[in-house]
Design a protein around this nucleic acid. Sequence first.
DNA 1: TTTTGAAGTTTACAATATAAACATCTTCAC
DNA 2: GTGAAGATGTTTATATTGTAAACTTCAAAA
Lengths: 205, 205
Amino acid sequence: MAVVKAAYHHGDLRTALIEAALEIIDEIGPQGLTIRKVAHRAGVSHAAPYRHFPDKDDLILAVVERGFELLDEEMERARTAAGSDPIAQFAASGEAYLDFAMSYPAYYRVMFSGDLLASKGNEALRHTSEASFVRMIDDLRMAQDLGLVRRGDPTLQAISIVSTVHGFVSLANDNRLNHVYGEQYTEQQVRDFVITAIFEGLGVN
Amino acid sequence: MAVVKAAYHHGDLRTALIEAALEIIDEIGPQGLTIRKVAHRAGVSHAAPYRHFPDKDDLILAVVERGFELLDEEMERARTAAGSDPIAQFAASGEAYLDFAMSYPAYYRVMFSGDLLASKGNEALRHTSEASFVRMIDDLRMAQDLGLVRRGDPTLQAISIVSTVHGFVSLANDNRLNHVYGEQYTEQQVRDFVITAIFEGLGVN
DNA sequence: TTTTGAAGTTTACAATATAAACATCTTCAC
DNA sequence: GTGAAGATGTTTATATTGTAAACTTCAAAA
């Protein structure tokens, strides 16, 4: 009774399946993800997952949702640790985003692999994946009021920032920028440059 | 002998398969792409494609390569039509990129679906997909020399621009910005804003 | 004309997603 | 307690798909 979710046949298979899927994505990539591998890793028969997810897409969707929760947690943690300066908070959560995206490239790819969301993404997931976007808009509005950021529609500013960050990590994770790093810069340097450009664009004091 | 590629059993099945795959991607999306559908649409047996492509991934890779060729052609066409002003040329080819990306979202997605390139992308394809990137760097260098663009490493500037553009079209194509359009702006307005922000960032006169 | 190799077909097989029927354990009404 | 009832798993079965292998056909070179 102290147990939150009483152990049943498996315990909490749904969660275990999501974890297993996560591991497989990280180890073999999204291509290698099969229902059967996930089931096997969780120690159940290959049809067991269907008691928790209507089909494979829905399992992946659950993984994506979990991913956005994790990302959100990371960003919040960083923001809290950044002290009270709004710009510092903003920068810290942005760095956390980049850290997450570049530490788990395959995972990030699945989270933003549009094919799924476009078709089966439900409203709940859409909301989750937009949470940090909404917060960024609020941040920008506040920063403007404090005179820290150039005036303008914060929604448009946020779109521009999100586009740049998402584009950068996507390209970097897909190894499309390698021909640059290797020759002149490290990934970290390029990353810093892009961040700097964003802040310049915002006219941060 | 006037015929470049003499008609054989099929004529030019390789090309026909790429075209068929293109259509399927456009109509049903990348998920719906199966070797057998492609073969059927091209009017051949389901194993025929294996005489031209080692496996499914290589077929897709050929489709991607064709996509980058088409994109490159579009950008060149726009650039040529833009007259002699370097900034106008630059802007025109950028617009062409956005037009392409947003007219064929599924196709664009496949072209930039990193899973493939990361694993099986060969050098030839990598080169193709970087052609326009290299040209952008040249453009920026020239524009700097003409005093039209803020000084700085053009490679880094290009990365920043490409990140923003790619991120924007990716998010837009994946319907991640819908909650913004609907309420206040049209897609075109947001698109223009992002472009403007890029040019501001470059300090274009 | 014969032969040969590329291009295509047929057949076969293994992996996978998923449905359906069956089994088992928890819980809840009594 | 007890005995449904329903949730959770398993087994079995099927259709789709990627791909290998053996076989066929035809253009072109010898």
